[in-house]
Write a protein that binds this DNA or RNA. Sequence first.
RNA 1: GCGCCUGUAGCUCAGUGGAUAGAGCACUGGCCUCCGGAGCCAGGGGCCACAGGUUCAAAUCCUGUCAGGCGCGCCA
Length: 591
Amino acid sequence: MPRGIVQEKIENLLQLAMRQAQSKGQLKLTLMPAITLDAPKRAEWGDLASTVAMTLASAEQRAPQDIAQIIVDNMAERDALLDRVEIVRPGFLNMTVKQTLWLEVLREIEALGVRYGTSRTGVGRRVLIEFVSANPTGPLHVGHGRGAAVGQALANLLESAGYEVVREYYINDAGRQMKLLGASVYARLRQRRGIEATFPEDGYQGSYIEDVAAEIDQRQGASLLELPREDAERRCQSLAYERLLGAIRQDLSRFGVEFQSWFSEASLLQSGAVSRVIQELKARGLIVEQDGALWFRSSAYGDEKDRVVRKQDGDFTYLASDIAYHRDKLLRGYDRLINIWGADHHGYIPRMQGVVEAFGSPKDRLRVVLVQMVNLLRGGHKVEMSKRAGMFVTLREVLDEVGVDAAKFYFLMRRSDTHVDFDLELAKRRSSDNPVYYVQYAHARVSSICRVAESRQMPIPTTAEADLELLQDPDELGLIRKLSAYPVIVEGAVEHLEPHRITFYLQELAGLLHAYYFRHRILPPAAEPELEGDLASFAPLEPGSIAGLSSCHREVLTPGLTGARLVLMRQVQQVIRNGLALLGISAPDRM
RNA sequence: GCGCCUGUAGCUCAGUGGAUAGAGCACUGGCCUCCGGAGCCAGGGGCCACAGGUUCAAAUCCUGUCAGGCGCGCCA
């Protein structure tokens, strides 16, 4: 099921052939190689190609061509599955799969529906995926949006592979940044009242601070100003925190990103978990005192140097919290931890993996997916951003402007560790320039065809009812081949934690669908409906004068062919829907 | 200075050892009597940064060089 039915059968065929050759003494097969099946780039190379013979060559001490020939000779069910096998130059094994086998793909998609593309590789394993985790000191900006889109898509991918997934947001609600938040709001509050106030040097400049101050002022400004400064700042901090975290939750929810767990850093400090974990590591000699500070010996785990966990002044650093946090994650019993971080934190990975190792887990139990910065453009010109100065484009503004689906697709269109240019003008364009609409339109187009079919009292047959063998055209087999690759694509995206593979696949599939639609008719022309049942009404159109189209339009469209094509369209639509669902993007029936 | 990431078409990027390196945008030229033109077809465009190596096979792996980004706090 993970590989798709055709690949599975062909793999099996090769596997059995090699075993048989081994038992006959024709191959040694000291170790069984993984069988790779690729879709060749050129049509004359068949449907599926394998390179096993070449990878075996050195171990077997034989020419790749000979090995390929041996494999072919030992294929038991060859004629049942393949139309043609060819051995080409260095040792490629090019296979043309029987049409009847390809048709199995359509039956499989119909049978599995939304489960087509899912697998069971992660069944019984629990994974915690931590993402966004932006400080609650301001609104989410575009960069967070990318992290949210990637995290959500990865969570969906892992779930589709059978993992039990928990999405978690780590709230940095302790430490200096929060104090600064309180002080910034307090200063703005006083300024509103015309009282002199010194704005903190590194304070938060954004206008949202003034909004928060205004709200607090309205509700309890007077009583607050009577408090001693420290108390008032603390009060401002907690009120601002609630307000800002609430806004973050709202934005994420609107973006379609849901978390099962919100984990507070402050709770770790309050419960004493941080000091306990530091004591424990100290007892084990993994934390040592030097120059009046405490150091985690991360260099013992491959980090460049040791890192401070408690400063001379007695305060814990963020690393101390993070150690306790990741300890907590491990204690909760997850088989895998995935963190999604901004790429500027890459230097932090070795020490965190060191932490994981220090607690007795292999370091790769923690995998960090880095997300690069988003370059925001408007009509080709860069939009400058600076968080410190409070100048940045918020995620909310982007969603207002381009919409949720377009934003997600853009964030997921590139490998996450490369910079991405996000052009607002381009993203909101509703045309072929915009790949989101291209893919969604393919889905809507099938819906539209089905609507028309229904309105003409033409029920869409099931795979069992339709005469699928009528699907002989290369364009049709091309579509089916693409559909059969979907589970393989998903599997790769899961294994490498790369959701962009899905967006590329969907664009290709949509491209094939649009081209097919343009070249072939699915429903008979609407004209002269009174000729129903008469084959003449489906007669070929006049060969058009349009170059390149005449041959396609000349095909004879029978009711049976219409039925088979409707089935094919339905399955394409299903796969587009499944893929978009993985990305968290809607699949509209109308646009 | 050290470490990590990146260098592929004019631009933005796919391509995790396989065949003649691909897509979108942009550019040029075509296609709506008909199931949705938010679409389709065709064309030009490349020293895969550079130089060595590994092997049947390298954009892909290794080494070095060059260029860009990021990181190297008792900040988060």
